[in-house]
Design a protein around this nucleic acid. Structure first.
Lengths: 129, 129
DNA sequence: CTGCATCCCCGATGATACTG
DNA sequence: CAGTATCATCGGGGATGCAG
């Protein structure tokens, strides 16, 4: 979805470009729960790199899916949230989550075996607010 | 979705692995219309390479999304179609198509400018049948 | 804390050739 | 016509460093 010159043959391709990246929908999935700060998202998606998160957020922002609010303070504080337009994708994200779990269940018989355990259960929360 | 060892954090990731590839959903989109032969799909998706189509179809088949029927004749004749299980994705595929077109409209004001024109209009059809 | 640029590697993808 | 294998390439994405 970078260059307006890009041509598509079917609407499906467009949608995949917007939310189909390796991380896009995972980011959106977490934003459905509410506003999230940059590092908050990094903790929620431990496998994503700093660079990727920035990049994907930029694209989602450019496409109008998420809103970026910069509090312009020091230290920097930025929050990301689903835009109203992006809210139209919640239904699909929910379906994805549900379908994916059911698929694991169908294929392996026990989805719980496939989902990684929680990573930050050690109470490393920071109450900077 | 190759190795059963792969771990996921959220169902969303699973779904994206199954239908989120660059071509998966486009292939499925065309299969919604009905059975399609291999080269028929190649014509419908002119930008996909022979190898990619084969590979993606194999994965979709392995995941139970599409059914492969080999007529075992010469010349070879193979048809692909959406499985009953894969049919559960039609709703999403339809949504993707619709949402994608609306998105182009929203972003550029005229989606028709973005969709490539049909590719085989030069009458180069071969009536081998 | 958040963001941007650079370098670099590896895997995804395409081109080609060969088989049934 | 359909499938497989091999090789070359391109770009996605990770690691790192610097800036505000």
């Amino acid at each position: 979805m970078q260059q307006p010159q890009k041509k598509y043959r079917v609407g499906v391709e467009v949608t995949l470009d917007v939310i189909g990246g390796k991380w896009k929908s995972v980011i959106l999935y977490h934003l459905v729960e509410g506003k999230k700060r940059f590092n908050e998202l990094r903790r929620l998606i431990p496998n994503i790199s700093h660079k990727m998160l920035t990049q994907q957020l930029r694209e989602l922002e450019r496409d109008g899916i998420v809103l970026r609010r910069d509090y312009e303070e020091v230290p920097p504080k930025v929050e990301y949230e689903l835009s109203e337009y992006g809210g139209g994708l919640i239904g699909v994200l929910d379906f994805f989550c549900h379908w994916g779990e059911a698929h694991l269940d169908r294929v392996y018989g026990d989805k719980s075996l496939m989902l990684e355990e929680n990573f930050g259960g050690s109470g490393a929360e920071e109450g900077s607010e």
